[in-house]
Design a protein around this nucleic acid. Structure first.
Length: 337
DNA sequence: AAGGTAAGCAACCGCAGATTA
DNA sequence: GTAATCTGCGGTTGCTTACCT
């Protein structure tokens, strides 16, 4: 019999739950709580397996469940978290009170299908100057999603319209992009000047590598990029600022300690705390294969000066024109690393 | 109105890690 | 130490409803 392994009982009912069954389960759980799900069916008088009871309770019956359409804020959060952690639905759900992993997963799967359909129809009806455009969105269903933030005006690089819309769907507001990514997946288009802790300036001539975001995820290409920036002071252990054209970006250490002890309560603190938690988990999960692989928080300096972060540099507190930069993020670790 | 198709969603399945005997 | 069991997760299925044609 092809029944589920936990359902050893005879006469185990499957399929949709009836209102009567729901009532029994609610009555039992609310009076006894749940400790051992395998005992629940017997004690609650249900012809279900414990697993089915658990699922029904977790995903539908528990009192703090939140139903109805996702709000725009929730959608943004889901998208951003998915950028960071991939298909870890339970993790994503833990950041959305009252929402279940199942619900979010369903939402995402239908959402992603819409996006793919939308993109396919858009790309069929428009010409593109960029051979990479297709590649930017091909991986939508995998963990190697690449997103172009900050719509790019340089036709030579990318015109990936569907992706640029993600600027509006990032975590907290369009003017406060907050991302996490591996440095080895970061693409900087154009030359960039970095300011190290010792006030040495380093020019990155990186155009040649950044033209092709597909190649970047190969270790060969990344090794080339690495060697081109090897003169930099290690950006991992301290806050380092990169100035790219008119945009300033802070690269924060992957783990920020003592967030609670920051002198000033800022409206970003809870966001930072949240990202730190994600950061932390990410590191634990990845077990950091080598020291060069870190992820960072990415802040728009216009919104968030790095003086709050204890960094050494004081960045110019302006960052107005994002339109000339293309940043391609591959938020989830590539298997090639 | 009827049939076909797509979308949304609840539930199931298999697996892996944790826990218990 | 290990086998059995439990729990939780992510992928997938399949049912119901909505929408076309």
């Amino acid at each position: 019999m092809g029944h589920h392994s936990c359902c050893n009982q005879q006469k185990v009912k499957r399929g949709l739950w009836s209102p009567e069954e729901d009532e029994k389960l609610i009555t039992y759980i609310t009076t006894h709580g749940y400790g051992c799900w395998s005992e629940v069916p017997d004690k609650a008088g249900l012809q279900r397996c414990g697993k089915s009871c658990r699922l029904r309770w977790i995903n539908y019956l528990r009192p703090d469940i939140r139903r109805g359409r996702f709000t725009p804020d929730e959608e943004k959060l889901i998208i951003s978290l998915h950028n960071v952690v991939g298909n870890r639905w339970a993790h994503i759900a833990s950041h959305l009170p009252g929402r279940t992993d199942n619900e979010i997963k369903n939402y995402w799967n239908s959402w992603i299908k819409k996006k793919i359909r939308k993109h396919n129809s858009a790309s069929n009806s428009s010409t593109t100057t960029n051979i990479n455009t297709q590649n930017h969105v091909l991986d939508f269903t995998s963990n190697n999603i690449k997103l172009d933030h900050f719509a790019n005006q340089d036709q030579n690089v990318t015109t990936a319209k569907p992706i640029s819309s993600f600027q509006e769907t990032t975590l907290f507001s369009p003017t406060c992009p907050l991302f996490m990514f591996e440095p080895n997946s970061l693409l900087l288009h154009g030359s960039a000047t970095t300011e190290g802790n010792n006030n040495n300036n380093h020019n990155l001539q990186t155009d040649q590598y950044f033209q092709d975001s597909v190649n970047l995820i190969s270790s060969e290409t990344w090794n080339q990029v690495q060697s081109s920036v090897s003169s930099l002071p290690p950006p991992i252990s301290s806050t380092t600022s990169f100035s790219m054209d008119t945009m300033n970006i802070n690269y924060l250490p992957p783990l920020i300690e003592n967030v609670e002890n920051m002198e000033e309560e800022s409206c970003f603190d809870h966001q930072r705390q949240e990202m730190n938690n994600i950061n932390d988990e990410w590191h634990q999960q990845q077990q950091c294969p080598n020291n060069n692989i870190n992820n960072f928080l990415f802040w728009d300096n216009m919104v968030h000066g790095n003086d709050q972060l204890g960094g050494e540099e004081q960045l110019a507190p302006n960052s107005t024109n994002m339109g000339t930069n293309t940043i391609t993020l591959s938020p989830f670790p590539s298997s090639s690393f």
